[in-house]
């Protein structure tokens, strides 16, 4: 029960997945989607463990007043707010597009409708259609175009289209009526958090690499041995060959196909030597992965049990 059943489960799921690779016939062709769905479900349940662990570790930190316990409070608040709004509201962004026609003098709304009707679009300049579809309306075929336009906010400032901005355009017609297109993006709190917190934090964290790559190069590229020299040399050439500065050093053309310059050596290194090295790593690693996978399926490799 403790070991036998897991081994059986591993064997069967592994074998079913292998079989469906070669048999495109029913019922095997349905297995892939089915099992992938199951995996998603289990992952969702497993996530509960992670969140509980995160809460537990931080609550302990707060209750025992460990070093830096204040930040655990921030963490827990951020976590609970995101989960609360995220689970109740959802995390997607809803887009509603409406056209508003109103009198610019009295600010009285004349009519508003969803931004699809071709009749209204004709009067609009700079409308950029995104897609068009044929729809039957009262027995009549009609082409409905959906599109986007430049944004002009109320104070008359043109705002460039970006993902997070509402898109608007106001056109003043002769009779003082104003047609305004409003693409309202009613983002949920979860989506707002993603856009304004997580995305910025992620890309900033990613950008730290620019600093670290410089310091790593300074520290590690020392010609301590022949291998280190090769590492250093090829990095040196590729770095110079990649940027325009590398061209300044000129080139020696021996033959149409043999040109000695930083950019051309860079291309050669990347295309041939790098390919060879990467290929060997890929081959070796893949064989290792296959071997371990086979051992898992036949029940020889059991690290995932986490002990006996």
């Amino acid at each position: 029960m403790k070991r036998g059943i897991p081994l059986l489960i591993v064997f069967f799921t592994g074998m079913i997945w292998l079989t469906q690779y070669f048999i495109p016939h029913y019922p095997f062709n349905k297995v892939m989607n089915l099992l992938s769905d199951w995996m998603k479900i289990i992952a969702a349940f497993a996530m509960v463990l992670g969140i509980l662990n995160l809460l537990r570790v931080n609550f302990i930190k707060i209750s025992r007043k460990h070093y830096n316990w204040q930040y655990s409070i921030i963490l827990i608040i951020a976590l609970l707010i995101t989960i609360g709004f995220g689970c109740i509201q959802g995390i997607t962004e809803n887009v509603d597009t409406t056209i508003l026609v109103y009198n610019s003098k009295s600010n009285e709304v004349i009519s508003s409708s969803i931004f699809v009707a071709p009749a209204i679009i004709e009067g609009l300049k700079n409308f950029k259609p995104i897609s068009s579809e044929d729809v039957e309306k009262d027995g009549k075929k009609e082409t409905i175009q959906k599109g986007m336009m430049d944004i002009t906010t109320k104070n008359g400032k043109v705002v460039k289209y970006t993902d997070s901005n509402p898109v608007k355009r106001i056109i003043v017609k002769d009779d003082n009526s104003v047609i305004e297109t409003v693409i309202v993006k009613t983002g949920t709190v979860g989506h707002w958090i993603y856009k304004n917190l997580i995305e910025h934090l992620s890309s900033t964290m990613f950008s730290l690499l620019a600093f670290f790559i410089a310091s790593a190069a300074f520290r590690a590229f020392r010609a301590k041995s022949f291998e280190a020299m090769l590492l250093l040399g090829s990095a040196f050439i590729v770095m110079l060959g990649k940027v325009p500065i590398g061209d300044v050093f000129g080139k020696i053309e021996i033959h149409e196909k043999i040109i000695i310059s930083f950019p051309s050596i860079q291309v050669w290194l990347m295309n041939y030597v790098n390919t060879a090295g990467q290929r060997a790593i890929l081959l070796g690693a893949a064989i290792g992965i296959i071997a371990i996978s086979i051992k898992i399926i036949i029940g020889l490799e059991r690290t995932y049990f986490g002990g006996e």
Binding site: A216, F221, G277, A280, I281, L282, G284
Partner: peptide, 27 residues
């Protein structure tokens, strides 16, 4: 690691690196 794209960074920044299949052979 067996990720070819990340090995250069581990090689330069770490003291010892198991390259590709060595990771699987290790256990």
């Amino acid at each position: 690691t067996a990720m070819p794209s990340q090995l250069p960074f581990f090689i330069t920044a770490c003291d010892y690196t198991l390259i590709g299949e060595e990771l699987f052979a290790a256990s």
